[in-house]
Structure formats: C-alpha cells, structure tokens
Write a protein that binds this DNA or RNA. Structure first.
Lengths: 201, 201
DNA sequence: GGAAAACCTGAACAGAAAGACAGGTTTGTG
DNA sequence: CACAAACCTGTCTTTCTGTTCAGGTTTTCC
C-alpha cells in the first residue's frame, strides 16, 4: 500500500503519467500488477492519490516562514532555504508537481484555484505589509513568489541541466550550499531587504 | 512537412512525448497518420526533429547579450528580457524543452554535455569578468544563470499556476511587463550591479 | 510524351498496456 | 472451530497505437 505509493511516485517522476505503466510500477513495488488495481482501481486514481500526497508539500513552508511578525530577512531566507532543501530531499515530488503543471494541471486545477490561491494571496499580503513597513523595497508580491518558486524548483526539476553544466554526476552538499546562498542572496538583495539589525517590527 | 512539425510541437507541448499519439498529431496537422511516418519514419524521430529545432533557441540570447564589452546592467537586463519574451512568444518550445529535461534529457544529453556546456561555461566566464572588474558583486556565475533560467522558464512552463494565482485566464501585456520588471530588478539588484552611469568598461 | 522518382494514403498488423475476473489465501471474529 | 470478510494474484480480454505495406497519384526531368 505505502510501498505502492512510493513506487508510483518514483516511476511517475521518471516518466510522467502517460509514460508510466502499471507493470513498471508493480515491478518497482515488487508486487503483481493486479494488486495495484485491487487497491487503487485505475491508473488515474493511483496518480491522483500520489498527487494529493504531494500537493500539501507545495505550500508547506510558506505559512511557516512568511509571517507578519518576522523580519523579511529572516522570513525570506528561511523560506528560500526550506524550498531549496525540499527540492533536494524530494526531487520526485517536485518533478511530479512540475509535470502536472506542465500539462495544464488537469487533475489539481480545483485545488490550485481555491485553497492554493487563497493561501498565496495571503502570503502576498504579508509581503506587501513588509514593503509598506519599509522593511524592503516595493515589489510585485505575487511575482516575487513566482520567481522564488522558479529558482528553487529549477534545482529539482532540471537538475540534469545543472549537473551537466557543472560536470558532476551529482551535486555535493557544498555545491548545493552555494546554490542556496546564491538564491538567498538574489532574493534578499533583489528585494532590497533592510538589515535585520534594525529591530524587527 | 512544416505543418507536421508545427502540429507535433503543439501536441508534444500539451501531452509530452509519451502522452502524444501520432493520430492526434496527424489530426492537428490535417493529414493522414501514414503521412507522418512517410516523412519521419518513427514517432521518436519526429520528436527528435522537433527537439532539434528547439534546442538552438535555448542558448540563443546568451551570446548576444552577455558579452565582455557590455556593461552588466545592459547585458543582464537585455538577456532577462529576451528570455522572458521567448517564454511568452514560444511557450510550446519552452514546455517541450522542460519536459525533456524532466525526463533526464535522454535525447539531448549529448548536446547538453558538449555544445551547451561549453557555451554556458563561456558565458559564466564573462560574468566572472564583470565581477572581477568590480561592475557587480561576486556571485557564483553558473548558479546565477541557473536562477535566471528558473525565473524565466517559470513563466512559460508553469503559467497555469501563475494564471490561477492571479485569477486571470491569460496574462495581459501590462501584467507581463510587471513580470519582466520584477525579474530584471531581482537580477540586477541581486547581483549588486553598479549603475551603468559609471562609464562602461 | 513517357519513364522514373518522389509523394501520398487507406487498410491491415502486431505489440503493449489497462482493466476485469474468477478463484485462492490469509486474517479477523463470534 | 467455522464462517465471513478482506486480501491477493494468474490469466484473459479489449482497446489503443505505432508501424508496415501495397497500391495509387503527382511531380520531375530527359
């Protein structure tokens, strides 16, 4: 059951929904194909289940780090780091999410337009608040989020490109730390975040 | 012939390689299925041909904008704008490229590790030169490129997410101009690019 | 004008993959 | 222990899809 979901996540991440076969997922899970159908009925339902498990992770760190009572230097840095670590720890989840979006999000459109949208707009309001309080530059809050998502997801979704450019078979921890540093710097300086030594709030 | 490639690009962008069928591409092109095979033999070869047409676009603007004799303020802003406009003008191409990378780039791995890598490293050297000349901060040059790619591609690949967040059925020109502004600002400030009023070079 | 080459396509084929199902095994429960 | 419920799986069926091929049409070139 859990093994199936794990195997499915792995296979879906490699080949996408259409490119994955129940047979391969079954083999990855070490189970007969019919077993998957016993638990999940159809391939689409299995995919949907996997996706639902991933969906929550997407906005996880947002509410934790981007809050009104934090200083943006702390909030943004923490958020970026959390997103980057997520990209490193769960690249399969990121890829499935990316693949779903690439197709136009047929399965999770509802979630995207409802729950997700509300939370993102809420986060954007916090960013706006930080700007209004003079803690950082005026910058389109939603677009700031889009750019952060873009930068961080790149490290999960397109790591072939990154690895082939750097010429390594996989990113070392130190190289990845450089990546985090770079993205963090881009965000903090890019938003003109004032030093947090001015007391928060 | 050209119609086939165009139709294929459109369909591949929507469903990915595995999710696309020759029948759908044929229909999109208004031709019988057998015709596609007459020209391209196999589905894989058709995909490869489409991809080869796209591959070149990826690095197109890099050599044009990021050159030693430009000031980084001009070079980076121009590059970002070019990439963003490309994302807007040819989202299908961007999506196919993204989809290929997501799968681990089985088809274009060779290109990626050879031609592409060399050019990217060359560009990185220009960025390094700008830093050395004191025109911008010291920042890991390759990672700077990765972040730019990430931010710009997001607007093509994941535009469902962007549209659903903003609550519009498609991005207006002015909204997109805001996006370009935001990304440009993030990059220029993020790299600490000095004002170009100090005469270039 | 005629032959050869290139172009085109309807119909059939072969393999793969999703799903159905019947029958078997284990687990839980009174 | 007995019975039911849940669990499991080998095999079969059906649908889909990439590909082939035989035969036709148009174009090119002498």
């Amino acid at each position: 059951m859990q093994a199936i979901l794990h195997a499915a996540e792995c296979v879906f991440a490699r080949h996408g929904l259409a490119g994955s076969t129940m047979a391969e997922i079954a083999q990855e899970a070490g189970l007969p194909k019919a077993n998957l159908h016993y638990y999940f009925g159809t391939k689409d339902r299995l995919y949907q289940t996997v996706l639902e498990g991933i969906v929550g992770e997407w906005l996880d760190h947002e509410a934790e780090w981007i809050t009104p009572n934090r200083h943006p230097a702390e909030g943004l840095a923490g958020y970026v780091r959390a997103k980057m670590l997520h990209a490193r720890r769960r690249p399969d989840a990121s890829r499935i999410w990316a693949s779903e979006l690439l197709r136009g999000a047929p399965v999770i459109m509802g979630y995207l337009c409802q729950t997700a949208r509300q939370q993102v707009l809420g986060t954007a309001r916090v960013l706006q608040g930080w700007s209004d309080a003079g803690l950082m530059d005026r910058i389109a809050p939603t677009h700031l989020l889009f750019t952060i998502w873009g930068m961080t997801q790149t490290y999960a979704d397109f790591d072939v490109q990154i690895r082939s450019t750097l010429g390594t078979s996989d990113l070392s921890d130190t190289e990845f730390e450089t990546a985090i540093q770079t993205v963090t710097t881009m965000v903090l300086k890019g938003c003109g975040v004032r030093s947090p030594t001015q007391l928060p709030r």
